[in-house]
Amino acid sequence: LKGYACRHCFTTTSKDWHHGGRENILLCTDCRIHFKKYGELP
């Protein structure tokens, strides 16, 4: 998807986009997986 950027690491290239984190922000796949695993963003 074009025009998306992770609100945590600011990458614009991700296989998928997810809403997550404490504020339900837009996250890339890597940040979301880390959040689900550790309960915090990298």
Rank of each mutant, 00 (worst) to 15 (best):
L1M: 15
L1Q: 05
L1W: 07
K2G: 09
K2P: 03
K2S: 12
K2H: 03
K2M: 10
K2E: 12
K2L: 07
G3Q: 03
G3M: 09
G3R: 09
G3I: 05
Y4H: 10
Y4W: 06
Y4T: 11
Y4I: 10
Y4A: 06
Y4M: 14
Y4S: 11
Y4V: 07
A5C: 14
A5K: 10
A5V: 12
A5P: 03
C6P: 00
C6T: 00
C6Y: 00
C6V: 00
C6H: 01
C6K: 00
C6G: 00
C6L: 00
R7L: 11
R7A: 15
R7M: 13
R7T: 13
R7G: 14
R7K: 15
R7Y: 11
R7S: 14
R7F: 07
R7H: 02
H8Q: 04
H8M: 03
H8L: 01
H8S: 09
H8E: 03
H8I: 04
H8R: 06
C9G: 02
C9R: 01
C9K: 03
C9L: 01
F10P: 04
F10R: 13
F10Q: 14
F10D: 10
F10E: 14
F10S: 14
T11M: 02
T11H: 04
T11N: 08
T11W: 01
T11F: 01
T11G: 05
T12A: 06
T12M: 05
T12C: 04
T12E: 07
T12K: 09
T12W: 01
T13G: 09
T13P: 02
T13F: 07
S14C: 04
S14E: 06
S14N: 02
S14W: 01
S14T: 06
K15W: 02
K15V: 10
K15I: 06
K15N: 03
K15S: 08
K15L: 08
K15Q: 12
K15T: 13
D16A: 03
D16H: 01
D16E: 08
D16Q: 02
D16V: 02
D16Y: 01
W17A: 07
W17L: 07
W17H: 08
W17Q: 06
H18Q: 15
H18A: 15
H18F: 13
H19L: 12
H19M: 14
H19R: 12
H19E: 14
H19V: 14
H19I: 12
H19F: 11
G20R: 02
G20W: 08
G20E: 11
G20I: 08
G20Q: 07
G21Y: 01
G21F: 03
G21L: 05
G21H: 12
G21A: 08
R22W: 09
R22K: 15
R22F: 11
R22D: 13
R22M: 07
R22S: 11
E23Q: 12
E23L: 06
E23K: 09
E23I: 03
N24T: 05
N24W: 07
N24M: 09
N24V: 04
N24F: 05
N24G: 13
N24Y: 05
N24L: 07
I25L: 12
I25Y: 07
I25M: 08
I25G: 05
I25C: 05
I25R: 06
I25D: 08
I25A: 09
I25E: 12
L26C: 15
L26W: 07
L26M: 14
L26A: 04
L26F: 03
L26V: 07
L26H: 03
L26I: 13
L26Y: 02
L27H: 10
L27P: 02
L27E: 04
L27Q: 01
L27R: 01
L27W: 05
C28R: 00
C28Y: 01
C28I: 00
C28V: 00
C28S: 00
C28T: 00
C28Q: 00
C28A: 00
C28M: 00
T29G: 09
T29N: 11
T29P: 03
T29C: 10
T29Q: 10
D30L: 04
D30T: 15
D30N: 10
C31Q: 00
C31H: 00
C31Y: 00
C31V: 00
R32G: 13
R32A: 13
R32K: 09
R32S: 13
R32Q: 12
R32P: 01
I33A: 15
I33Y: 13
I33K: 13
I33F: 10
I33G: 15
I33H: 14
I33T: 14
H34E: 05
H34M: 06
H34G: 07
H34Q: 10
H34V: 04
H34S: 12
F35H: 13
F35Q: 11
F35W: 13
F35R: 05
F35M: 08
K36T: 14
K36R: 13
K36L: 11
K36E: 13
K37E: 12
K37H: 07
K37R: 13
K37C: 08
K37W: 09
Y38E: 14
Y38H: 09
Y38G: 07
Y38F: 11
Y38V: 14
Y38M: 09
Y38D: 09
Y38L: 09
Y38A: 11
Y38N: 15
Y38C: 15
Y38S: 13
G39W: 04
G39F: 02
G39I: 01
G39R: 09
G39D: 15
G39C: 08
G39M: 03
G39N: 14
G39Y: 05
G39E: 11
E40K: 12
E40H: 09
E40D: 10
E40Y: 08
E40N: 09
E40P: 01
E40Q: 13
E40C: 11
E40G: 09
L41N: 03
L41D: 05
L41F: 15
P42D: 00
P42V: 02
P42A: 03
